[in-house]
């Protein structure tokens, strides 16, 4: 007898998981996002034990667990590394292609943070170059209140 499994049509279900999430930024995250939203300022936190200034801010030092203190950071800094993105993804891609992701160490911080880069010329990006934040006009309390970073333009 022929095995019924041979030649069985295979059904595929197009489904999804769509659970709505509301992630708490916490007191530390809230203060950071408020500064971005209300004052267009970056804040980091410094571990009094290790002396490291973390950005994004940490309530406690990831290394030693000590409670950190607030530090103001510049809105410009150094591009540590980057990648120019050439592929579009319908749900994810945040800016027109090509844009870049970069790890940016702001002046005053010891760690880099991840953000977007735009307004750069083809081949312009280099590790070690200076970049500056471009803030959104409408800000809502998220890291996207910074639209992106761009190569630092000398004051006109």
């Amino acid at each position: 007898m022929e095995d019924w499994r041979t030649g069985q049509e295979i059904l595929v279900m197009e489904g999804r998981i769509k659970v709505p999430y509301r992630w708490a930024a916490g007191e530390t995250g809230t203060r950071y996002l408020q500064a971005l939203r209300d004052e267009m300022r970056f804040l980091g936190t410094r571990c009094p034990q290790c002396g490291v200034v973390y950005h994004p801010p940490r309530r406690h030092c990831p290394d030693c667990g000590t409670e950190c203190e607030w530090r103001e950071l510049a809105s410009r800094g150094v591009l540590v590394t980057y990648t120019v993105v050439r592929r579009h993804h319908s749900q994810l891609t945040p800016l027109d292609i090509p844009f870049a992701y970069g790890i940016i160490r702001l002046e005053g911080a010891d760690t880099g943070f991840l953000h977007l880069l735009h307004e750069f010329a083809e081949g312009e990006l280099r590790a070690g170059m200076e970049v500056e934040a471009v803030f959104a006009t409408e800000r809502e309390g998220s890291v996207r209140d910074v639209r992106y970073f761009r190569p630092l333009r000398e004051a006109v």
């Binding site: 499994r5 069985q8 295979i10 489904g15 007191e27 809230t30 749900q91």
Partner: peptide, 25 residues
Amino acid sequence: KELIKLESGEAEQPFRWSAGTYGSR
């Protein structure tokens, strides 16, 4: 005190689950 929350909005994870041979039958 304001405490900010970030929302996932319309984000979703799409899947194409196969019913497998047995389930399909």
